[in-house]
């Protein structure tokens, strides 16, 4: 399904300065029972966000009204573990359109790109500067410009470039997905398939 186009996003951000945040934390397995892509945002970070009796844990950042925005900033090695795309869906469904970290796990990064959430990898130093800026002022805004491949701490001169391959970039700018592309080259695929028996 084609998704929303992404070009420039300027928003405050939610900080999660924890390393190795795995997809079991992003969305625990017991919430994967749906057969539709709906409502996963309610269970984003479920066990960090709620007590066993479903009351919110006050010390978790998503329960702190000082922090909001469309950008999630996580510690190193964000999204490790399971291939569940539900993790990316939960991030999207909650309202995030961009995740910033100094390092992403492979499958999670891919899953994000496939559903229109932009993973932005920055240097460890820049990540720390972002965390520090948000700690000093929760309303700090980040500006992510996909076309220019830059991320900026608004109101400062601090800016970094980030990498994304040209194909994925153009997909995100245009809101296209891979299936659109693959369906267009179906004839080539059928010819290829004859060369490789089951």
């Amino acid at each position: 399904m084609a998704y929303d186009k992404f070009d420039i996003l300027t928003s405050s951000a939610v900080p999660l300065p924890i390393e190795n945040v795995d997809t079991d934390q992003i969305i625990p397995a017991r919430f994967l029972k749906a057969t539709e892509r709906k409502g996963f945002g309610d269970n984003l970070f479920r066990d960090w966000r709620y007590n066993a009796d479903n009351t919110p844990k006050n010390d978790f950042v998503l329960n702190n009204s000082s922090y909001s925005g469309k950008i999630l900033v996580g510690g190193k090695n964000f999204g490790s573990g399971s291939s569940r795309e539900h993790a990316a869906w939960a991030v999207y469904d909650y309202g995030f359109r961009c995740v910033v970290s100094s390092f992403f796990a492979d499958i999670f990064r891919n899953n994000c790109l496939n559903i229109g959430v932009l993973p932005v990898q920055v240097s460890a130093d820049f990540l720390q500067q972002i965390f520090d800026a948000i700690a000093a002022n929760p309303e700090t805004e980040l500006k992510v410009d996909l076309n220019a491949q830059t991320i900026t701490l608004v109101g400062t001169e601090l800016q970094e470039n980030f990498d994304i391959n040209a194909y994925k970039k153009s997909n995100m700018l245009n809101g296209f997905d891979d299936i659109d592309y693959l369906l267009n080259i179906k004839d080539d695929i059928k010819v290829f398939a004859q060369t490789t028996p089951l």
């Binding site: 291939s83 569940r84 795309e85 891919n110 194909y167 299936i179 592309y181 693959l182 695929i189």
Partner: peptide, 20 residues
């Protein structure tokens, strides 16, 4: 290797995925 659900859909639809 493991893939996400969008890629499961790609494989069902086209028997291919797109990976660097």
């Amino acid at each position: 290797f493991g893939i996400g659900t969008s890629e499961v859909e790609m494989v069902l639809a086209s028997q291919c995925i797109m990976q660097p």
